[in-house]
Design a protein around this nucleic acid. Structure first.
Length: 298
DNA sequence: GCGTCCAGGTCTACC
DNA sequence: GGTAGACCTGGACGC
């Protein structure tokens, strides 16, 4: 079954998909030859659905693994709009960067929409699994969670596990099967808090809390520190924090500081002119070369 | 084959 | 409030 979702004029499918590493973590898959983003979506009520997303003129073409009713189709569209940030209003952001010639490319190319998961819970778990380890280990942990605890779609692919599914497993499972090491009790505790309703991470999307207060709440989750919290803030649409980590520091040194290590204060000063958009400008700046020039704009 | 280092950090105890 | 040291894993590297 095919669906079509119209996209905003400033939307760039490839820039959005490659905005950061999430496209490579299950249940996302990217076929770069056909430029198709595959994703398993689980509404919880019925069998999960695999969707294949590709870009057509001014729209996203969606191919689903099975036929859907009207309600299910609406839910799938809602999830895809959320994942691709189709309803994010970036006009102010693009006006801001366009005023700086060096950063005008961000607006021209439609960069700045950061791919995210259908739920904050999934983004949070993935963020925890990026801390203090190689990317290869992050992929291994996330693949383990999906393959061990995800629900099967009609095409055999698996969805991301629910908090309830994770909460049922003992800490030993996370250590022995997921290989998440010291993060194991953190993952277990997070899943239990979310599954029991004592922590509502989805409410962060619409929270009226000031940035500092929201960061504080995020850091109440064990294993979430500055890096993870500030990155999560970006995924819910707040870009005050720079989310500096070893990679962004090294990249800033290479691209902006003649290969020399720069202090966090210096990095902060460099992007301060972008005010509440500074975190997003930094990320676009650091990842400008992630898309081959010949593929830009398609 | 073995030891060491380190990667897209965070927590805790201690000062 | 600032800062060592510990924490898991797995790949790269040197010997």
């Amino acid at each position: 079954m095919d669906l079509t979702i119209k996209t905003p004029r400033d939307f760039n499918f490839r820039r959005t998909v490659l905005s950061h590493g999430w496209y490579a973590l299950l249940p996302f898959e990217l076929d770069k030859k056909s430029w198709t983003l595959v994703r398993v979506l689980d509404g919880g009520q019925t069998e999960p659905v695999t969707v294949k997303l590709s870009s057509t003129h001014g729209a996203i073409k969606v191919s689903t693994s099975r036929r859907l009713g009207k309600k299910a189709a609406r839910e799938i569209e809602r999830d895809i709009r959320h994942i691709l940030r189709l309803d994010d209003d970036l006009r102010e952001f693009y006006q801001t960067v366009a005023a700086n010639p060096e950063f005008a490319w961000v607006a021209h190319q439609g960069a700045g929409r950061l791919l995210r998961s259908p739920t904050v819970f999934e983004d949070l778990v993935k963020m925890l699994c990026t801390t203090n380890c190689s990317w290869a280990l992050t992929e291994k942990m996330i693949s383990g969670l999906v393959n061990e605890l995800g629900r099967q779609s009609s095409d055999g692919r698996k969805s991301f596990p629910t908090a309830a599914a994770m909460a049922q497993k003992p800490e030993k499972f996370f250590r022995d099967r997921i290989r998440s090491g010291y993060r194991s009790p953190y993952l277990k505790e997070l899943a239990q808090r979310v599954a029991s309703g004592s922590l509502n991470v989805e409410s962060w999307l619409t929270s009226g809390l000031a940035p500092d207060e929201l960061i504080k709440e995020m850091k109440s989750v064990k294993g979430v520190g500055n890096y993870a919290a500030e990155n999560l803030m970006k995924l819910i649409g707040r870009y005050d924090g720079l989310a500096l980590d070893s990679w962004t520091r090294a990249q800033f040194a290479r691209l902006r500081n003649h290969g020399r290590v720069a202090s966090d204060k210096k990095i902060s000063r460099f992007y301060a002119r972008f005010n509440s958009w500074r975190g997003l400008v930094l990320w676009c700046d650091m990842t400008r070369d992630w898309l081959d020039p010949e593929n830009i704009g398609k």
